[in-house]
């Protein structure tokens, strides 16, 4: 199972690098999202994959009984997903604004804030 996940992380990163090499800002953003998913999967795998039950504590005891899944990486991934969600939502709005006010999503044409190109 670990190998399978490792391979899928690799595929995700490869796909994201391919997308990020594009000049189109939206494609770049999609690549970024793929890569952040790969990072989240990395954390998930780092917590080891076990065939455990959900780590819920039954009534009357202090700790979960039997083999349970490692809850910490799941909490970390959840936090990372939430933060990533916020950042990418902002980036998406920014991309939309960029398209509206600059009229293009070609990254090589986005140089309003740069000095003029030497002729």
């Amino acid at each position: 199972m670990e190998q399978l996940l490792a391979i899928s992380i690799g595929v995700l990163v490869a796909g994201s690098v391919y997308l990020m090499l594009a000049r189109d800002l939206l494609r770049f953003l999609f690549g970024l999202i793929l890569m952040s998913n790969a990072a989240n999967l990395t954390i998930f795998v780092a917590g080891r994959l076990t065939p455990g039950a959900p780590p819920l504590v039954p009534d009357g005891v202090d700790a979960p009984v039997g083999l349970v899944a490692n809850a910490l990486p799941q909490a970390l991934v959840l936090t990372a997903i939430v933060i990533g969600f916020g950042l990418f939502a902002f980036a998406l709005v920014l991309t939309l604004r960029a398209y509206q006010s600059l009229g293009t999503l070609e990254t090589s044409d986005m140089r309003i804030a740069e000095p003029d190109e030497p002729k």
């Binding site: 916020g86 939502a89 902002f90 998406l92 709005v93 939309l96 509206q100």
Partner: peptide, 13 residues
Amino acid sequence: GAVLSIVFALEEN
């Protein structure tokens, strides 16, 4: 609040 402000901003655009 955060999700709705983003959603409304995108919808209105």
